[in-house]
Nucleic acid binder design. Structure first.
Lengths: 350, 350
DNA sequence: TTGAAAGCGATACCAC
DNA sequence: GTGGTATCGCTTTCAA
């Protein structure tokens, strides 16, 4: 079966290619009729022929001629990370509804790959980019904005006036985590973070500290910094837990999913139990948070909101309608206190 | 900053567009030099000019003219499902290395959306498709093969001679799960599945039954079929567990991650413990399998292999080099017995 | 309301 | 080795 072009349709319908083009690009108005300068009867015929022949617009040709691609690119730092996978799912849905096609790619935290990906998607004439930058990605992204391609940053920030931004307030998230534990009556609250913190982590740490200070617990601030490498990190956390009760520690803020997993592992190894020996506020999502009794409080990023805002902002930027104020969106994280697979989560905001 | 075309490069380098095209499409041979009929000195100059001007091939134009897009589409049934997210990640990596760009999309188990997605990607002149079909996706996919677009099925099978297939042997997977428990000395092994089973589940059930029969446990086969809806399913599973010990049941095969989660939930609700009261073999991946002591045996699909095989098969089909025998790849699932975040998993095959 | 014709930026073919 | 040019399928004036 060979390709059906606009000419085939035109010939078969007995009209010019122009007419066919008009019809194929017409949007259906509110009254259900096509809003294009074509006789409705003719339009109907064209539509029928197109369908009969199985015509499909050749995107390459349309894009080449019009300069528009109705395509955006989404580049995340790791598409296998459930957080990013969810973001991609949402973005794909939203874009699809808005008539945009999405090209996804994963930079795998590699600035060089990011740079080549950027070249590729530029070649696709994408109208805009949504990027979760990897470390060192500044150069590649500078290139994109220099070309005048609207770009929205998510998850991580990097400098640059032209970027749109949809970021979660991580200071607030860390603050909320600690504050919740304080409200529960705990005072000796410790936090376990990484040695080499990225901005998002540093912000969460700052939030924890702010909450502690605000509640007169300045002297109880205890911030651990573990190795990033897994085996080492596991050991570090076990050490921290081994001596924790001696210090009178009652609760932990665990600012990433992985750190939380290390903590659960340590509980296992030391035969400790969650509500009895310690309280946790974890981050992100895990089956184990839900299956614990009671549910482990955890802080999640509003994935749907991130995707919505990122796409809408990008569209505004594409249409050159984004004001400077709109170009920086800050979202609140949420504290999840209950609910599990199948049930609506119980959400709180402090 | 405006676009740089091949003509700009040609003018600046003082050569014809043909030359530039040759150079830009040349592959670097083993000896490090470009394999194209161009004077190396000229080529060098062209390359330098192209770089200076920031030339990037216009993909739409190239694709329009050549009919090739170096693009494949991957359509999964739910991109937020970690299994598919991992598949996508692997596919993106492999394709990228092979010089292919991937368009991802998610049909969200909706045949209509699948159909529209198919239309869209066909318009992109994709050279091939990798699809995890959703229920009712037959029609849309028939359209694709009718157009002669090479298509590889993963995860689920649907009829059709033209499809390539990379599927996991689910019968084998179910067999392995039951066999492992039998080897552990259990006899009263039950399985919890859904009422409305898709093929993959039915195969796993058949595998369980085969293993039981083979070991002379035909009379102990007990296959529960719970509701698909979450709240209902949760209750069903709790009921099953409540009466299980009275029946003398010792172990369960839990053929999906969700069913496994319901089972863990039931343990919680009924205050039962895993090694003491029952043994499980679960499916897929979950933090909770790893954090249990000992690790909960679980069966995983070989994601990397699926992606590798799917892409390689697709390439062969694109190049029309796939024999009929090669068009059906069957992969073995793996039984994971140990290891957790940061450590290599311990894998066994029966 | 309709149609003819000019390109968009690359590649492919053919001539030199 | 190198260059001229028709062409891919569509959108977009512009004219009728």
């Amino acid at each position: 079966m060979k390709k059906v072009t606009i000419r085939d349709v035109a010939r078969e319908a007995g009209v010019s290619v122009t007419l066919v083009s008009f019809v194929m690009n017409a949007k259906v108005g509110k009254d259900g009729r096509l809003d294009c300068p074509v006789n409705p009867v003719t339009a109907e015929r064209v539509l029928k022929v197109a369908k009969k022949l199985g015509y499909r617009r050749n995107h390459a040709a349309a894009s080449l001629r019009s300069g528009r691609s109705h395509t955006i690119a989404v580049i995340v730092s790791d598409i296998a990370n459930p957080f990013f996978a969810e973001i991609c799912r949402s973005l794909e849905n939203i874009s699809y509804k808005a008539g945009y096609t999405v090209i996804f790619a994963s930079s795998d935290e590699n600035p060089e790959k990011l740079s080549r990906l950027v070249d590729t998607v530029i070649g696709y004439n994408v109208e805009g980019l949504i990027v979760a930058p990897c470390l060192g990605g500044e150069v590649a992204l500078k290139k994109v904005v220099d070309l005048g391609i609207p770009t929205v940053l998510i998850d991580r920030d990097i400098p640059g006036k032209e970027f749109g931004r949809v970021l979660v307030d991580n200071l607030d998230a860390g603050y909320m985590a600690a504050k919740y534990l304080i409200h529960q009556g705990f005072g000796k609250i410790e936090m376990i973070s990484y040695q080499s913190g990225v901005t998002s982590l540093l912000d969460r740490e700052a939030g924890y500290q702010k909450a502690m200070e605000e509640s007169g617990l300045h002297d109880d601030i205890y911030l651990h910094r573990i190795a990033y490498e897994a085996e080492e990190a596991k050991k570090n956390v076990i050490e921290i837990f081994r001596s924790a009760s001696k210090r009178g520690c009652e609760a932990f803020v665990l600012p990433t999913k992985k750190i939380s997993m290390y903590a659960f592992n340590a509980l296992n190894v030391l035969r400790l139990n969650l509500p009895k020996d310690f309280s946790f506020v974890c981050f992100d999502d895990s089956d184990i948070y839900d299956l614990n009794k009671p549910v482990v409080p955890h802080i999640v990023q509003p994935i749907g909101d991130i995707a919505d805002n990122a796409f809408n902002l990008l569209r505004k930027m594409i249409d050159k309608k984004a004001t400077e104020a709109e170009k920086h969106v800050s979202l609140h994280a949420q504290l999840v206190l209950g609910g599990s697979f199948g049930s609506e989560p119980t959400v709180a905001t402090f």
